[in-house]
């Protein structure tokens, strides 16, 4: 569990990036911070691994104030996927993935062994391990960034617009893969994006920010879509334009209801398995279908 307790951040130049933010991010869930550019998302994320120190309030992990923890140890225990992959250009891909285990004293051969497994896990060919980062595409580099963040098997994964530099198709692919990893590994994920569709796809819980790190609304994707707190949220999630209002149409002779948008255009069929998945229900489906 990650808890922000009235956290503020004012940078030396006077910019207030975050003002009195309080929120609890549950263990084993994906929480997505979403909001327009400059709303303080990255700043909040970097307070968790002490890359940024708050000027007020506390950040606690499982009840312990991170300010009391050793920075280096804390950072090694948290996976961090940076916006621009941030790989070391002079090291091979496989050694980039093995960075943290090697820092922790794991033997190189052993660390590489595990790094190759992680390449499999994020869907990269093992042969790419021998290359240098500059020999990979942007999307491949971002997968390497994800593999590196997973290498030390951290409980917490911070992801700052990790799929920003890839095309929509690969992006959707990576989002699905992340969902799979999340279910498989049960990590506590904090994910930053300014793309509301991506937020709804990835999230168990969404926090929508206004400027200055002020929370506009927090909740599950379904809650937010069904009951946007105000006009700002409604326009941000696209509910006001009717883009999100989907309806079920039950038709005689067919036990599977049809999903239609507000103009009555069919978008898809509601499968019973979708209904069973909590959080990622019809709303998320609608988000990607538009």
């Amino acid at each position: 569990m990650i808890e922000f307790r009235s956290v503020s951040k004012q940078f030396p130049d006077g910019t207030v990036a975050v003002d009195d933010f309080s929120h609890v991010l549950p263990t084993g869930k994906a929480t997505v911070l979403v909001g327009s550019s400059g709303s303080g998302k990255t700043t909040l994320l970097r307070m968790i691994n002490r890359m940024v120190e708050p000027t007020g309030g506390q950040v606690l992990i499982d009840g312990t104030d991170v300010a009391k923890l050793d920075r280096v140890r804390l950072r090694r225990s948290i996976g961090y996927v940076l916006q621009a992959a941030g790989l070391l250009p002079h090291r091979r891909v496989i050694d980039n993935v093995a960075t943290v285990p090697v820092l922790n004293g794991v033997r190189k051969a052993e660390a590489r062994e595990r790094a190759y497994e992680l390449l499999d896990k994020v869907g990269l060919d093992r042969a790419l391990g021998e290359r240098y980062p500059s020999q990979l595409s942007g999307g491949q580099q971002q997968r390497v960034g994800v593999a590196r963040a997973l290498a030390a098997d951290p409980e917490i994964l911070l992801m700052d617009e990790p799929f920003g530099a890839v095309d929509p198709i690969v992006r959707a692919d990576l989002q699905l893969e992340l969902n799979r990893l999340q279910r498989e590994l049960g990590k506590t994920i904090v994910f930053v994006t300014h793309d509301i569709d991506e937020a709804f796809t990835v999230a168990d819980q969404v926090v929508i920010f206004r400027k200055g790190g002020v929370v506009a609304q927090a909740g599950t994707p379904a809650e937010i879509l069904a009951h946007p707190a105000d006009d700002f949220v409604a326009s941000f999630v696209g509910a006001d334009a009717g883009r999100r209002s989907l309806q079920l149409q039950h038709r005689p002779g067919d036990d599977r209801p049809l999903v239609v948008d507000r103009d009555g255009r069919p978008i898809g069929v509601l499968e019973s398995t979708v209904e069973a998945a909590p959080g990622a229900g019809a709303s998320a489906q609608g988000g990607t279908a538009t």
Partner: peptide, 21 residues
């Protein structure tokens, strides 16, 4: 700068950043 920031964020000490990056 992003490379050095990433190295620090992975948990390298300042010496490790200097010597290895």
């Amino acid at each position: 700068r992003r490379i050095i920031d990433a190295a620090r964020a992975q948990g390298m000490t300042e010496w490790q950043i200097l010597l290895r990056v």
